[in-house]
Design a protein around this nucleic acid. Structure first.
Lengths: 205, 205
DNA sequence: CCCGATTCAGCACGATCGTTCGTGCTCTGG
DNA sequence: CCAGAGCACGAACGATCGTGCTGAATCGGG
């Protein structure tokens, strides 16, 4: 019961392979979709047997939920934290959008933003997985909105402006740029999103 | 259900069932995705055998391409034509966006905008189907942009404005409203998009 | 009135899907 | 040092996937 968690142990090894699986799963699912993500293909990808991989999760739904958790971790590290590092105010709003566009351009997920893909795929398919995605999207919008509200408190955006509206519009520009970038392969659309966000914030000064 | 021949003729009957299949396919694919659309399930839906249905298309890709054609027809009838019916100028831009949001709200496709879903699903999966979707999205953006350009020529939007940028932003607002509406089930997001489009056009006057 | 064409069902195929079970192997706690 | 926990494997299951082939209806043109 009272045992020191040894860094290199049998239990730790299991946790390590689990991480390996989920990292591959997040990237694969951004391309194939969370539903299209098949256990056999994922097992091939990480070089282990289907049943061995499956044992880590009690069902496909379990794998999907865990994959969302892993994707959230990556997104947080690659987008949210860099964005929050900027000083509060419009600078932070811009930084969040820029971090998002950057993670798209750098191909952090080979299929573009994981959650944009998941939201589109699962928006009309009831279940626990969908619920998690809905919750996540709400949180992300909340993150942007909070940054906008901070900018308001600092007087960089006028008090009468609708923070939720501005957050919705900024998000719309960057997630659409994500898809357009994947479709057309042209980084110019990312620049369009940047310009749109700047203009929108300037209009609300 | 394939029954009751009104305009008799064996060949006409074949064409009729083909239409029935494709209409069901377009609606089913908006929910399950073009890849998730399976021939067996579609056959059940229209009440015929898998092989009988399959004979109408030479492959699954053939079915997918035909389904895109059917979806385009529906979209054209439900969105493009009503939008184009408005007088040229900003009124037509607004009408196009409104027609789009309306077709989402009325559930013309049970899974929301067919092409938004298809674009998100296939953006990173090479093939003939993806190519068709890319082409379609380009055409749709062109339709909006043309309406914006008309508004410029009429002096309702200033000449120096970037029509492609405005079209991109308007499209971003309505397609994101589409997904958000499906995710949260709240028509308020559609109103957000309407407001965003109006504001954007007003800012470019 | 019959021949060719067309529509559709029945059946079967190999592959892959998610899932389960039993079996070793290796490491850990006592 | 031994018993047991935990990880990964191979094999197999029923279902479903896309895709063929065959044959029975049914209609149009000569």
């Amino acid at each position: 019961m009272v045992e020191a968690a040894s860094p290199a142990g049998r239990k730790a090894a299991g946790e390590r392979t689990r991480r390996t699986i989920l990292e591959a799963a997040a990237k694969l699912a951004s391309v194939e979709g969370l539903d299209g993500l098949s256990i056999g293909r994922l097992a091939d990808e990480v070089g282990m047997s289907k049943s061995g991989l499956y044992a880590h999760f009690r069902s496909k739904t379990g794998l999907q939920l865990a994959t969302i958790g892993a994707a959230d971790e990556i997104f947080r590290r690659e987008v949210v934290e860099p964005g929050q590092a900027a000083p509060p105010g419009t600078a932070r709003v811009v930084a969040l959008c820029e971090a998002f566009l950057s993670h798209v351009e750098r191909g952090v997920f080979p299929g573009g933003c994981f959650f944009t893909a998941a939201a589109s795929e699962l928006s009309v398919r009831p279940g626990a997985v969908r619920d998690r995605v809905v919750e996540w999207v709400g949180g992300w919008l909340g993150t942007i909105q909070a940054a906008v509200a901070e900018a308001q408190e600092r007087g960089e955006i006028r008090k009468q402006a609708d923070a939720a509206q501005i957050a919705f519009e900024a998000n719309a520009l960057i997630v659409t740029a994500n898809i357009a970038f994947l479709l057309f392969g042209d980084p110019a659309v990312l620049e369009r999103a940047r310009r749109g966000v700047r203009d929108r914030l300037a209009a609300a000064e």
